[in-house]
Protein backbone atom coordinates (compact mmCIF):
# COMPACT_ATOMS: atom_id res chain seq x y z
CA UNK A 1 0.00 0.00 0.00
CA UNK A 2 1.41 3.37 -0.85
CA UNK A 3 2.11 6.02 1.71
CA UNK A 4 -0.96 8.20 1.17
CA UNK A 5 -3.38 5.30 1.20
CA UNK A 6 -1.78 4.04 4.38
CA UNK A 7 -2.11 7.46 6.01
CA UNK A 8 -5.74 7.75 4.93
CA UNK A 9 -6.49 4.33 6.35
CA UNK A 10 -4.86 5.17 9.68
CA UNK A 11 -6.81 8.40 9.80
CA UNK A 12 -10.02 6.42 9.41
CA UNK A 13 -9.06 4.14 12.29
CA UNK A 14 -8.32 7.12 14.51
CA UNK A 15 -11.61 8.72 13.56
CA UNK A 16 -13.37 5.64 14.92
CA UNK A 17 -11.23 5.72 18.05
CA UNK A 18 -11.83 9.43 18.63
CA UNK A 19 -15.57 9.32 17.94
CA UNK A 20 -15.97 6.38 20.30
CA UNK A 21 -13.92 7.96 23.08
CA UNK A 22 -15.93 11.14 22.60
CA UNK A 23 -19.06 9.17 23.42
CA UNK A 24 -17.60 8.29 26.82
CA UNK A 25 -15.62 11.41 27.69
CA UNK A 26 -17.30 14.16 25.72
CA UNK A 27 -20.94 13.17 25.52
CA UNK A 28 -21.41 11.20 28.73
CA UNK A 29 -18.84 13.22 30.68
CA UNK A 30 -16.96 10.25 32.17
CA UNK A 31 -13.20 10.45 32.22
CA UNK A 32 -11.74 7.33 30.60
CA UNK A 33 -8.01 7.02 29.99
CA UNK A 34 -7.99 3.45 28.77
CA UNK A 35 -8.99 3.66 25.14
CA UNK A 36 -5.73 2.14 23.92
CA UNK A 37 -6.56 -0.88 26.09
CA UNK A 38 -9.89 -1.52 24.33
CA UNK A 39 -8.21 -0.88 21.00
CA UNK A 40 -5.60 -3.51 21.87
CA UNK A 41 -8.25 -6.00 23.01
CA UNK A 42 -10.05 -5.62 19.69
CA UNK A 43 -6.84 -5.76 17.67
CA UNK A 44 -5.56 -8.92 19.31
CA UNK A 45 -8.87 -10.80 19.39
CA UNK A 46 -9.64 -9.80 15.79
CA UNK A 47 -6.15 -10.84 14.73
CA UNK A 48 -6.38 -14.11 16.66
CA UNK A 49 -9.55 -14.93 14.78
CA UNK A 50 -7.73 -14.20 11.52
CA UNK A 51 -4.69 -16.31 12.40
CA UNK A 52 -6.23 -19.28 14.19
CA UNK A 53 -9.91 -19.60 13.41
CA UNK A 54 -10.91 -17.99 10.15
CA UNK A 55 -12.17 -20.50 7.58
CA UNK A 56 -10.23 -19.84 4.39
CA UNK A 57 -13.22 -20.76 2.31
CA UNK A 58 -14.99 -17.55 3.35
CA UNK A 59 -14.37 -14.44 1.28
CA UNK A 60 -12.03 -11.92 2.95
CA UNK A 61 -14.66 -9.29 3.55
CA UNK A 62 -16.86 -11.73 5.43
CA UNK A 63 -13.92 -12.80 7.52
CA UNK A 64 -13.14 -9.15 8.19
CA UNK A 65 -16.73 -8.58 9.18
CA UNK A 66 -16.63 -11.47 11.65
CA UNK A 67 -13.27 -10.29 12.97
CA UNK A 68 -14.66 -6.79 13.51
CA UNK A 69 -17.66 -8.27 15.26
CA UNK A 70 -15.43 -10.28 17.57
CA UNK A 71 -13.24 -7.25 18.25
CA UNK A 72 -16.33 -5.19 19.08
CA UNK A 73 -17.94 -7.76 21.35
CA UNK A 74 -14.83 -8.72 23.31
CA UNK A 75 -13.81 -5.08 23.82
CA UNK A 76 -17.38 -4.22 24.82
CA UNK A 77 -17.41 -7.08 27.33
CA UNK A 78 -14.12 -5.95 28.81
CA UNK A 79 -15.66 -2.47 28.97
CA UNK A 80 -18.56 -3.92 30.91
CA UNK A 81 -16.19 -5.74 33.23
CA UNK A 82 -14.24 -2.61 34.09
CA UNK A 83 -17.15 -0.18 33.81
CA UNK A 84 -19.58 -1.78 36.22
CA UNK A 85 -17.40 -1.47 39.32
CA UNK A 86 -15.83 1.87 38.34
CA UNK A 87 -18.75 3.85 36.96
CA UNK A 88 -20.40 3.90 40.37
CA UNK A 89 -17.42 5.89 41.59
CA UNK A 90 -16.72 9.53 40.87
CA UNK A 91 -14.63 10.79 37.96
CA UNK A 92 -11.04 10.44 39.16
CA UNK A 93 -11.46 6.80 40.08
CA UNK A 94 -12.60 5.90 36.61
CA UNK A 95 -9.59 7.67 35.10
CA UNK A 96 -7.19 5.76 37.33
CA UNK A 97 -8.95 2.42 36.86
CA UNK A 98 -9.09 2.71 33.07
CA UNK A 99 -5.48 3.83 32.96
CA UNK A 100 -4.57 0.74 34.97
CA UNK A 101 -6.74 -1.41 32.73
CA UNK A 102 -4.87 -0.26 29.61
CA UNK A 103 -1.51 -1.13 31.13
CA UNK A 104 -2.71 -4.47 32.49
CA UNK A 105 -3.97 -5.46 29.05
CA UNK A 106 -0.63 -4.56 27.50
CA UNK A 107 1.31 -6.55 30.07
CA UNK A 108 -1.07 -9.51 29.75
CA UNK A 109 -0.53 -9.57 26.00
CA UNK A 110 3.20 -9.24 26.52
CA UNK A 111 3.04 -12.49 28.49
CA UNK A 112 0.79 -14.40 26.14
CA UNK A 113 2.85 -16.62 23.96
CA UNK A 114 0.05 -17.69 21.60
CA UNK A 115 -0.20 -14.16 20.27
CA UNK A 116 3.55 -13.70 20.08
CA UNK A 117 4.12 -12.04 23.44
CA UNK A 118 7.01 -9.58 23.27
CA UNK A 119 7.97 -10.80 19.79
CA UNK A 120 4.78 -9.41 18.37
CA UNK A 121 1.86 -11.03 16.56
CA UNK A 122 2.74 -11.82 12.94
CA UNK A 123 1.11 -13.23 9.82
CA UNK A 124 -2.20 -11.50 10.37
CA UNK A 125 -4.22 -11.76 7.15
CA UNK A 126 -4.44 -8.57 5.14
CA UNK A 127 -8.19 -8.05 4.98
CA UNK A 128 -8.59 -4.37 5.73
CA UNK A 129 -8.70 -1.84 2.99
CA UNK A 130 -9.73 1.77 2.58
CA UNK A 131 -13.25 0.84 1.59
CA UNK A 132 -14.01 -1.26 4.65
CA UNK A 133 -12.31 1.10 7.07
CA UNK A 134 -14.35 4.02 5.81
CA UNK A 135 -17.45 1.88 5.73
CA UNK A 136 -17.02 1.42 9.50
CA UNK A 137 -16.11 5.07 9.95
CA UNK A 138 -19.47 5.98 8.47
CA UNK A 139 -21.28 3.37 10.57
CA UNK A 140 -19.63 4.66 13.75
CA UNK A 141 -20.50 8.27 12.99
CA UNK A 142 -24.08 7.53 11.98
CA UNK A 143 -24.50 5.33 15.04
CA UNK A 144 -23.38 8.09 17.40
CA UNK A 145 -25.24 10.85 15.60
CA UNK A 146 -28.48 8.87 15.60
CA UNK A 147 -28.01 7.85 19.20
CA UNK A 148 -27.84 11.50 20.22
CA UNK A 149 -31.08 12.28 18.46
CA UNK A 150 -33.07 9.81 20.52
CA UNK A 151 -34.04 9.35 24.13
CA UNK A 152 -31.12 7.04 24.95
CA UNK A 153 -28.60 9.55 23.68
CA UNK A 154 -30.32 12.39 25.50
CA UNK A 155 -30.15 10.35 28.69
CA UNK A 156 -26.40 9.92 28.16
CA UNK A 157 -25.96 13.66 27.64
CA UNK A 158 -28.01 14.48 30.73
CA UNK A 159 -25.44 12.66 32.86
CA UNK A 160 -22.74 15.01 31.65
CA UNK A 161 -24.99 17.99 32.30
CA UNK A 162 -26.06 17.12 35.84
CA UNK A 163 -26.13 13.60 37.17
CA UNK A 164 -28.30 14.31 40.21
CA UNK A 165 -30.83 16.16 38.11
CA UNK A 166 -30.82 13.28 35.63
CA UNK A 167 -31.52 10.79 38.43
CA UNK A 168 -34.29 13.04 39.65
CA UNK A 169 -35.88 12.97 36.20
CA UNK A 170 -36.29 9.21 36.47
CA UNK A 171 -33.23 8.34 34.37
CA UNK A 172 -31.19 5.34 35.45
CA UNK A 173 -27.88 7.15 35.18
CA UNK A 174 -25.71 4.15 36.02
CA UNK A 175 -27.30 2.13 33.24
CA UNK A 176 -26.68 4.87 30.68
CA UNK A 177 -23.13 5.54 31.85
CA UNK A 178 -22.44 1.85 31.40
CA UNK A 179 -24.13 1.86 28.00
CA UNK A 180 -21.99 4.75 26.75
CA UNK A 181 -18.86 3.16 28.15
CA UNK A 182 -19.57 -0.25 26.65
CA UNK A 183 -20.47 1.11 23.22
CA UNK A 184 -17.37 3.33 23.25
CA UNK A 185 -15.18 0.38 24.18
CA UNK A 186 -16.83 -1.76 21.51
CA UNK A 187 -16.09 0.66 18.69
CA UNK A 188 -12.50 0.99 19.91
CA UNK A 189 -12.26 -2.80 19.64
CA UNK A 190 -13.68 -2.67 16.14
CA UNK A 191 -11.05 -0.08 15.19
CA UNK A 192 -8.48 -2.47 16.64
CA UNK A 193 -9.58 -5.29 14.40
CA UNK A 194 -9.48 -3.08 11.30
CA UNK A 195 -6.05 -1.90 12.38
CA UNK A 196 -4.72 -5.42 12.90
CA UNK A 197 -5.79 -6.55 9.45
CA UNK A 198 -4.21 -3.51 7.87
CA UNK A 199 -0.88 -3.60 9.73
CA UNK A 200 -0.63 -7.42 9.62
CA UNK A 201 1.67 -7.13 12.63
CA UNK A 202 0.88 -6.16 16.23
CA UNK A 203 3.17 -5.44 19.12
CA UNK A 204 1.96 -4.78 22.69
CA UNK A 205 4.08 -1.64 22.85
CA UNK A 206 2.02 -0.21 20.04
CA UNK A 207 -0.81 0.21 22.56
CA UNK A 208 0.82 2.17 25.36
CA UNK A 209 -0.85 4.70 27.61
CA UNK A 210 0.56 7.38 25.28
CA UNK A 211 -2.00 6.37 22.67
CA UNK A 212 -4.89 6.78 25.09
CA UNK A 213 -3.60 10.28 25.72
CA UNK A 214 -3.28 11.06 22.03
CA UNK A 215 -6.86 9.93 21.34
CA UNK A 216 -7.96 12.07 24.27
CA UNK A 217 -6.03 15.00 22.78
CA UNK A 218 -7.89 14.50 19.50
CA UNK A 219 -11.28 14.97 21.11
CA UNK A 220 -10.16 17.84 23.32
CA UNK A 221 -8.70 19.57 20.29
CA UNK A 222 -11.90 19.09 18.30
CA UNK A 223 -14.16 20.01 21.19
CA UNK A 224 -15.31 17.56 23.86
CA UNK A 225 -18.82 16.39 23.12
CA UNK A 226 -18.81 17.19 19.41
CA UNK A 227 -18.75 14.33 16.92
CA UNK A 228 -17.56 16.68 14.20
CA UNK A 229 -14.87 17.88 16.56
CA UNK A 230 -13.70 14.33 17.22
CA UNK A 231 -13.41 13.68 13.48
CA UNK A 232 -11.49 16.89 12.85
CA UNK A 233 -9.26 16.29 15.88
CA UNK A 234 -8.47 12.78 14.67
CA UNK A 235 -7.60 14.03 11.19
CA UNK A 236 -5.37 16.80 12.48
CA UNK A 237 -3.47 14.68 14.96
CA UNK A 238 -2.92 11.84 12.47
CA UNK A 239 -1.72 14.07 9.68
CA UNK A 240 0.24 16.58 11.74
CA UNK A 241 3.00 14.17 12.86
CA UNK A 242 3.45 13.11 9.23
CA UNK A 243 3.87 16.72 8.20
CA UNK A 244 6.35 17.20 11.00
CA UNK A 245 8.23 14.18 9.74
CA UNK A 246 8.70 15.88 6.39
CA UNK A 247 10.21 18.85 8.19
CA UNK A 248 13.09 16.69 9.28
CA UNK A 249 14.30 14.49 12.08
CA UNK A 250 14.65 17.17 14.75
CA UNK A 251 11.20 18.67 14.28
CA UNK A 252 9.72 15.18 14.40
CA UNK A 253 11.46 14.44 17.68
CA UNK A 254 9.82 17.50 19.19
CA UNK A 255 6.40 16.14 18.29
CA UNK A 256 5.02 15.97 21.82
CA UNK A 257 6.36 19.43 22.63
CA UNK A 258 4.62 20.78 19.57
CA UNK A 259 1.37 19.06 20.65
CA UNK A 260 1.68 20.66 24.05
CA UNK A 261 2.18 24.12 22.58
CA UNK A 262 -0.75 23.52 20.26
CA UNK A 263 -2.88 22.55 23.23
CA UNK A 264 -1.83 25.58 25.27
CA UNK A 265 -2.69 27.86 22.34
CA UNK A 266 -6.04 26.11 22.08
CA UNK A 267 -6.72 26.62 25.78
CA UNK A 268 -5.96 30.31 25.37
CA UNK A 269 -8.04 30.95 22.28
CA UNK A 270 -10.69 28.27 22.19
CA UNK A 271 -10.92 26.67 25.62
CA UNK A 272 -13.75 24.36 24.59
CA UNK A 273 -12.03 23.04 21.46
CA UNK A 274 -12.41 23.87 17.79
CA UNK A 275 -16.10 22.97 17.64
CA UNK A 276 -17.04 23.36 21.30
CA UNK A 277 -20.01 21.09 21.84
CA UNK A 278 -21.43 21.97 18.43
CA UNK A 279 -21.71 19.95 15.28
CA UNK A 280 -20.90 20.97 11.75
CA UNK A 281 -23.71 23.09 10.37
CA UNK A 282 -24.85 20.70 7.67
CA UNK A 283 -25.65 18.13 10.36
CA UNK A 284 -27.61 20.71 12.28
CA UNK A 285 -29.36 21.68 9.08
CA UNK A 286 -30.48 18.08 8.50
CA UNK A 287 -31.60 17.76 12.09
CA UNK A 288 -33.78 20.85 11.97
CA UNK A 289 -35.23 19.76 8.69
CA UNK A 290 -36.18 16.38 9.97
CA UNK A 291 -37.65 17.64 13.18
CA UNK A 292 -39.81 20.05 11.28
CA UNK A 293 -41.29 17.22 9.27
CA UNK A 294 -41.63 14.72 12.10
Amino acid sequence: MDYLAHLTLNTGIFIILAVSLNLINGICGQFSLGHAGFWAVGAYTGAAYGVFLAPEALPDFINLFISCGIGFVVAALSGLLIGVPCLRLRGDYLAIATLGFGEIIRILIMNMDVVGGPRGFTNIPNWSNLFWVYFWVVITIVFCANLLRGTHGRAIISIREDEIAADSMGIYTFKYKTLAFVIGAGFAGLAGSLFAHAQQFLHPNGFTFMWSVIILLMIILGGLGSITGAIVGAVILTILPEMLRFMGETVSQWRMVIYSILLICLMLWRPSGIFGKHEFNILKFFKKDEEATS
Binding site: N146, G150, G153, R154, M169
Partner: peptide, 15 residues
Protein backbone atom coordinates in the same frame (compact mmCIF):
# COMPACT_ATOMS: atom_id res chain seq x y z
CA UNK B 1 -35.64 14.26 29.32
CA UNK B 2 -38.31 14.20 31.99
CA UNK B 3 -40.34 11.96 29.68
CA UNK B 4 -37.44 9.57 29.13
CA UNK B 5 -38.69 6.78 31.37
CA UNK B 6 -41.99 6.62 29.49
CA UNK B 7 -40.39 6.16 26.08
CA UNK B 8 -41.12 2.74 24.71
CA UNK B 9 -38.56 2.21 21.97
CA UNK B 10 -35.26 0.42 22.45
CA UNK B 11 -31.67 1.28 21.61
CA UNK B 12 -31.81 -0.45 18.22
CA UNK B 13 -34.93 1.49 17.25
CA UNK B 14 -33.15 4.66 18.31
CA UNK B 15 -30.12 3.94 16.09
Amino acid sequence: LAGHSRMKYGLIANI
